[in-house]
Design a protein around this nucleic acid. Structure first.
Lengths: 154, 154
DNA sequence: CGACATAGGTTGTATATGCAACACTAAGCG
DNA sequence: CGCTTAGTGTTGCATATACAACCTATGTCG
């Protein structure tokens, strides 16, 4: 019986390791994001901050709540990420002109940083596409885009 | 000229947002891992810990260094994750029987927890596959497996 | 118009992650 | 055999993440 139990446990572990998407996506996240973190390090930002800055430049005056919905970032996480970006003068957080939502605006420095980000992003993106393989990279992007659309349509 | 500069910046942001793999993979990681975290919450573990426990059960007496290589987790991160798992009595860290590497061993509690993990994992895995779509989920897994093999072969 | 519900944000606490710098010790070499 | 080097782990610091609990001001409705 004990032997039976033990083999059931081993089998469970084997099944999970063999198929688990969480494990794989965590691995992918660590691996790929370290490429972007490395690429941005010399300009003093992280991949997370670079991504958020891009979103804010493209959606000037967006509110934290809406930004959080688009990126699926929890509001408390976002609050602290924005605080750091404000501290390093990448964005400004302005009081609501109407209603109750804050408005996010990139600073001059934030705007200009995008010109430094672009070549570094290109290099990191190329490294990543090469690591994954062109077809696989396209597949992954398509999978995410599709899931994202499904989630945002609710 | 200023106008030119500004349009260059907007274009850079648009290009990055349109193609960036880092952005997408971070989104995917947050979205998918919250499904597994939710599924495991009532048994007091996180997705990260569940994944590590599975790896340790499958590779009894593995060393932290080797585990870190397999999962691509930095040694200091791993050191602290293992500390937490030891504190909650999921694993034991044994002194090296030879050489200089520690040896990781699941406790009785750790072993038995796998039987609680399995049904929760199945549910989370199904939810995730449905969110991504069957084909896309398979594509993502294949992309990671392939990249992982490439990295581990060095 | 006033009580109340709720949306939007922040704060407390905890985990997960990584870089740098350190400590320790087994291995390798002269 | 002792010195040096390498591999292995831990610790200090910082960021990213999320849940729960809270605060506040806005809207809403009786």
């Amino acid at each position: 019986m004990r032997r039976n139990q033990s083999s059931k446990i081993q089998k469970a572990a084997a099944t999970i390791a063999d198929q688990c998407l969480s494990m794989r996506i965590r691995f992918l996240n660590r691996t790929v994001n370290s490429i972007y973190d490395d690429a941005y390090r010399d300009i003093g930002i992280t991949a997370a901050q670079g991504n958020m800055l891009v979103a804010i430049v493209l959606n000037e005056r967006i509110s934290p709540t809406v930004l959080g919905q688009r990126l699926n970032i929890e509001k408390s996480t976002l609050s602290r990420n924005l605080e750091r970006m404000r501290n390093s003068d990448l964005i400004e957080v302005q009081e609501p002109s109407s209603g109750r939502s804050l408005e996010l605006v990139p600073t001059k420095k934030g705007h200009e940083l995008l010109l430094e980000i672009l070549p570094r992003w290109k290099a990191a993106q190329a490294t990543t596409r090469e690591l994954l393989g062109e077809n696989e990279a396209t597949d992954v992007a398509a999978a995410v885009d599709q899931a994202r659309e499904k989630l945002l349509s609710d």
